[in-house]
């Protein structure tokens, strides 16, 4: 037998090295968090890696030792017990080890699942701002109800301020993901999902549509630009004074299949987000999505309960 395990363990350590060096490498977006959500998710990832490696490494060693020691060769001193097939003590041990590991992991996971539930507001001194996100084929429309501006394939947000992203989709299901700030959430037509994120560092972050939506889905990347509150306010003012308005006709065009350049608009039609969300819901219908349909007032009401 050739030393297959040495090769494998070498490869594993290279991988691990890649991941670990990645922590200092800004290319590994998930491991280089720029906000509390991504940061907690990274902690969780490291906890699971630790638990898993604590089991996996001994397994690799045991495998290598057994394969080496018990290989058939002349004058082998290793014992050979062809009928040894049961040992209650040993079997209890390895039912026990994974059970304990999984119990620990399950407790951690359940805990974090409630803590990181995307619709839960983030604790902060600052009032959250709302940004409405609509995935269309194949572009992202961002509308800022409080600022009255709109952007395409680009999102601007102030640093250290919780952002309440409201997510919907015009047609196919997509997934809104800014890895540096936190995990993704699906955008689905007929629903307004809530994803809370916060950036605690200024910078430009990569964002993408993580769920396949057809032909030019790969073009649905965008930049999340995080600046100071002053710069954000200045940006809003600038957009309002220099850019054109997003009209109803523009919205109709946006719904057509196609890609779009980065763009900014000084205003947008009232309620465009909820109109797109509700477009397929007939009057008075209590569809399957009814419980997901929340207006911004409802959202604010639930907001207060969390505080």
């Amino acid at each position: 037998m050739r030393p297959v395990f040495r090769k494998l363990s070498a490869m594993l350590s290279v991988t691990l090295l890649l991941i670990l060096t990645g922590c200092s490498n800004e290319k590994y977006l998930v491991l280089d968090p720029k906000g509390p959500i991504a940061s907690a998710q990274k902690d969780l990832i490291l906890i699971t890696v630790a638990i898993c490696t604590a089991i996996a490494i001994p397994v690799f060693i045991i495998t290598a030792v057994i394969v080496w020691r018990y290989r058939e060769r002349p004058n082998s001193k290793a014992s050979y017990k062809p009928n040894w097939e049961h040992s209650t003590k040993l079997e209890l041990t390895w039912w026990g080890i994974p059970i304990i590991a999984i119990i620990i992991l399950a407790i951690v996971t359940v805990n974090y699942t409630y803590k990181l539930e995307p619709s839960t507001a983030i604790q902060s001194d600052k009032e959250p701002i709302e940004i409405q996100v609509t995935s269309l084929d194949w572009k992202w429309l961002f509308t800022y109800p409080e600022q009255g501006v709109a952007t395409i394939n680009y999102v601007q947000m102030p640093v250290d301020t919780p952002v309440r992203f409201k997510l919907t989709s015009d047609m196919a299901m997509n997934s809104f993901w800014i890895p540096s700030l936190g995990g993704q959430l699906y955008t689905m037509s007929g629903m307004a999902m809530t994803l809370h994120l916060l950036a605690d560092e200024e910078g430009s972050y990569y964002g993408s549509g993580a769920n396949f939506t057809g032909e030019h889905f790969a073009q649905m990347t965008f930049t999340a630009n995080v600046t100071s509150q002053e710069e954000f306010d200045a940006w809003v003012k600038d957009v309002k004074s220099t850019e054109a308005a997003l009209t109803e006709e523009d919205v109709v065009k946006l719904k057509e299949k196609g890609t779009h350049e980065v763009a900014q608009f000084s205003s947008f039609p009232d309620n465009v987000f909820y109109d797109i969300m509700m477009q397929y819901v007939e009057e008075g219908e209590k569809g399957a999505h009814a419980h997901h349909v929340t207006t911004s007032e409802d959202a604010e009401a639930s907001e207060h309960q969390h505080h």
């Binding site: 395990f5 969780l44 495998t63 996971t109 936190g182």
Partner: peptide, 24 residues
């Protein structure tokens, strides 16, 4: 060893809040 690593990353994916960063 291959399946142990695959199983390990499977467990990582099963951790729901972490999966928000792994998904897709």
């Amino acid at each position: 060893p291959c399946f142990v690593v695959g199983g390990m990353t499977g467990v990582m994916l099963s951790v729901a809040p972490a999966d928000f960063q792994f998904h897709n």
